[in-house]
Design a protein around this nucleic acid. Structure first.
Lengths: 202, 202
DNA sequence: ATCATTTCCGGACACGTTGTCCGGACAGAG
DNA sequence: CTCTGTCCGGACAACGTGTCCGGAAATGAT
């Protein structure tokens, strides 16, 4: 028999992807990740509970993979702002913030899942802390560059970067519920105004 | 027999307070609230497991009361700022922020407990969201008053209030680890600068 | 001082979840 | 065709939960 079009590993990855997507969807529908039983998770994913344990060590394992999957999106979209931070261009800032907001909007459930899991599972929390640390660090560098270029006010680079990143993170979780999607632009405007006022506006 | 010096209700409240304090202490020592069994919780508090259920509906009930307690602390210390928000006085703002930071510093474990519980227990999350909404609402009113008095910039009151409150919450929770207590003043300075730049500085 | 009430304890119970293991079915790989 | 990987369903022990009970102890009222 010739190797079928879908290899074993492909199907394996596809299934695990299905489980991740199902978990994300459940959280998006308002379920609490911590209150989800493996039974329910497996059922929605179309596999049996025992099969779940073949693919995942436990629920925390799932959350850790979700964390990694989500990290790239945020980091990638943040690059736009970091690279133009030394130009005091409010329009560019607004565009960059809008892009970040979009990531939270589309993958918001994944972030919520990760946050909920991090509160319970220390290894997930470590994974998340590492991500935030990287974001903060690169933002700090951007601020230092902007200050060197004379485009930014003399704020404390390290602390300001941390506060702004945590602010964006929290807003992404708490204020971008799909329910009131009308206000998303307004939220992006407000974030832009706060960052602009803090970093650039003389 | 004359009523003893401590009435029933007094002792009841005292015991429940002891349980709250014990839980807070356990979290302060690095325990995860979600992984704490009622057995352990009761044991540390010096009561039996069955007695715990006489005083608390469940672990979530304990967390909800903790939530009310800590947010009440926040609300009380925030009053100073809300009442003077229409005066563009940076020193007053800095003092108010410092007071808020102090609450997070001293009751940090309680906030951690609430966060951990909210991640697992939807009712705790609801309680927290509701109480935060109150903080946001009063901040929004303060902004509207400040704008009416001509002291503040024309920001969106509702969204800006929400973003700033969530920013403070996240910073208090993530950036005020007792380990590096030296940076707390710097954090308060940065928060003050951000809020000042956003709301007041022309 | 006596008596009723409240409070606490320890133990039991049914229930749900977890993580592990197994035998058997089935399809893809060699 | 045979072997191997994958999945299922079911079982299991272990643990935590929330509820209930009987009895002991402390407390308040008479």
């Amino acid at each position: 028999m010739p190797p079928s079009r879908t290899t074993r590993k492909q199907r394996r990855d596809a299934m695990e992807q299905r489980v991740l997507a199902a978990a994300e969807q459940l959280v998006r529908d308002g379920e609490n990740f911590g209150e989800l039983s493996v039974e329910r998770l497996a059922g929605v994913s179309g596999i049996s509970r025992s099969t779940f344990y073949v693919h995942f060590e436990d629920k925390g394992d799932l959350a850790r993979r979700m964390t990694k999957a989500v990290v790239a999106d945020l980091e990638e979209v943040s690059t736009d702002w970091w690279s133009t931070a030394d130009q005091a261009d409010r329009g560019q800032l607004r565009t960059a913030i809008g892009a970040i907001i979009d990531v939270y909007r589309h993958r918001g459930a994944a972030f919520t899942l990760v946050s909920q899991a991090a509160a319970v599972d220390e290894s997930v929390a470590d994974e998340l802390r590492g991500l935030m640390r990287r974001l903060i660090d690169r933002t700090r560098q951007a601020i230092e560059l902007g200050q060197a270029a004379g485009a930014m006010r003399p704020v404390e680079p390290r602390e300001t970067a941390a506060v702004l990143i945590w602010m964006i993170e929290r807003v992404g979780h708490q204020m971008l519920r799909p329910s009131d999607s009308g206000g998303h632009d307004k939220v992006a405007d407000v974030l832009t105004d706060i960052i602009w006022s803090t970093l650039y506006r003389v």
